[in-house]
Amino acid sequence: MNIAFIAGVLSNAVLSGTFILYATVGEVIGERAGIVNLGLEGVMLVGAVMGFVVTAQTGNPYLGVLAAALAGAAFNMIFAYLVVTRRGNQLASGLTLMFFAQGVTAIIGKAFVGKPITGLTDLRIPGLAELPVVGHALFQKDLLVYLVIPITVAAWFLLYRTSWGLRMRAVGEDKTVAFAAGLKPHRLQYQALFIAGLLGGIGGGHLSIAYTKTWQEGMTAGAGFIAVGLVIFAAWSPVRAILGAVVFGGAVALQLQLQARGANVSPFLLDMIPYLLVLVVLMLFGRVKGRVVPAGLKDVFEGTG
């Protein structure tokens, strides 16, 4: 282990963790309002393709990020309509919308496969970017990397320090009681899913506009499902989601760095590290689950709030 190795792992972990963290925080907000969205993968794909298309057409990656966020939110509104207004099964609706998104994004993005874009450029933070080890990893990244922690903390603040967050969590715990207390569960769930869609869309956008600067059909490659898993890992807390993203991103980075160094281990085994690590952590911290899971997760509210 040398400095270059650690710096490499750190730098790659930050990149691999960022788009996952956006999506995870979005899913935390949705699940706090009582809705599991297995279509998160689809939301990310929609964000990725719309972000890329707008960036390619306008040449402005920041407009692309905006488009990714809004497209993700708009797509999540379809999900909201199905599961909130029409009271559809959340798991089935989410999965169906994911497949729907795979097809739709393939059509939208067809003309844009292989289009070169400038994408989000790295912003060097003067002074800090020259630091050893952490300089390149933390202070020479694109805007979305710098924003992900503030946004996560803002999500925590929204959930736990505002009355809107309190109301929304009440809906997630028990819709009927929340309704009796004069809240409007449906409206709050729509709002939560809108924010979740914004964040999922930004996550997908980061992947296509900043990280890889390409659009490819199905490019999220399961990241949306990992984000749903990390919500459990994070015990439905946005701040703990940071830990989850760091562990997962770090494990991906570690296994690639080990391969690049020529570690005398089969690449197949190394490829399992991220998933094994998440499994181990789930086993170790699984017990807290019962205490923190929103009681009304997946419940259907039959009222008209």
Partner: peptide, 20 residues
């Protein structure tokens, strides 16, 4: 361990560059 995963390909390239 995949023919097509842009995120992993970018991360792999970065890992190699970080290795010199």
């Amino acid at each position: 361990n995949t023919w097509s995963d842009p995120a992993k390909e970018a991360a792999s390239t970065n890992a190699l560059v970080d290795q010199g």
